[in-house]
């Protein structure tokens, strides 16, 4: 992977403020202020002026504690919520010339159904638990105008196989699956339509330890086999270490350090990263 190629995703100046916002918000908050809270206007700066890149075929880790803003970055990228300011360019969208946040509602649907995939920490957020497993996947196919049932079922079965969900469960409701299997269905769904970029938000948090390993292995395997580009958000350094090629460390809504994962974790420069790494050890 060559660094001077055009990144698949380029996020510039992403800021998300909850509350009325004011000119002092950015300077009142962040790691040096050790706060998200702007005392001038009472707003919360969930993330401020975040710049990150993801290159084709790589996995970018986003690590930090709760309040770091890492999940907010994903929510903005998937457009579950809109940023207060900033731009993000995806090469697969308008040849990277239009920020995804300028998309029309039709374009936004295409981003969410085809160009991007998202896996949430809680399967309830990414699946309709009262729609069959196969149906959940078919929803993305239907959104891009598939109209042949046999073809959709074959494709859904293919994705479920990749995520090691037994085919017999394709017509069952995820409401009755274990947490681990629900996550696998979510991953299968996120893979449908071969998105350019998959977003994984605390993928294994909330799963039993014994189950986590299986899901992580699966993701690693799929990523290697299909050359997926992904952003993995986690507070767990071991997940980051396992999956991410490069890592971005966030604190209080700002990026404090980024680089090749091994380097960041073996030789952290920023005091906060040092703290994180040493407490995980």
């Amino acid at each position: 992977m060559v660094m001077n190629e055009t990144p698949l995703l380029s996020v510039q100046g992403l800021t998300k403020i909850f509350g009325r916002g004011c000119p002092q918000c950015l300077e009142q908050t962040g790691p040096t202020a050790d706060s998200n809270y702007c005392s001038a206007c009472g707003s919360i700066v969930a993330c401020g002026d975040v710049n990150i890149e993801v290159y084709d075929g790589e996995v970018l880790g986003l690590v930090g504690e709760s309040g770091s803003g890492k999940s907010t970055v994903l929510q903005c990228l998937f457009q579950d919520t809109m940023p207060s300011s900033g731009a993000a360019y995806l090469t697969a969208f308008a040849e990277g010339r239009k920020s995804i946040w300028e998309a029309t509602s039709g374009e936004r649907r295409m981003l969410r159904n085809k160009l991007l995939g998202m896996v949430y920490q809680n399967p309830r957020d990414g699946l309709d638990l009262m729609v069959t497993a196969g149906g959940n996947i078919a929803e993305r196919l239907l959104a891009v105008d598939w109209r042949n049932v046999a073809a959709m079922r074959e494709k859904s079965a293919d994705y479920l196989t990749r995520t090691e969900v037994p085919i017999e469960r394709m017509d069952h409701l995820p409401a009755y699956f274990s947490g681990g299997m629900q996550q696998r269905v979510q991953i299968a769904k996120a893979l449908a339509n071969s998105p350019s970029l998959v977003l994984l938000d605390e993928l294994t948090t909330g799963l039993d330890i014994s189950v986590q390993a299986g899901v992580l292995d699966l993701v690693r395997h799929i990523q290697r086999e299909y050359g997926l580009s992904a952003i993995v958000v986690s507070h767990d350094l071991s997940v980051i270490r396992l999956l991410a090629d490069r890592t971005v460390v966030m604190k209080m809504g700002r990026v404090v350090e980024q680089g090749v994962t091994d380097q960041v974790l073996e030789d952290p420069q920023h005091p906060y990263t040092q703290l994180l790494v040493s407490s995980a050890a």
Partner: peptide, 17 residues
């Protein structure tokens, strides 16, 4: 307005299943 009918198609797919 947005011609966003995928949930309707999904309901019909689920009927067939």
């Amino acid at each position: 307005a947005e011609r966003d009918y995928s949930r309707m198609w999904l309901a019909i797919y689920e009927d067939i299943v």
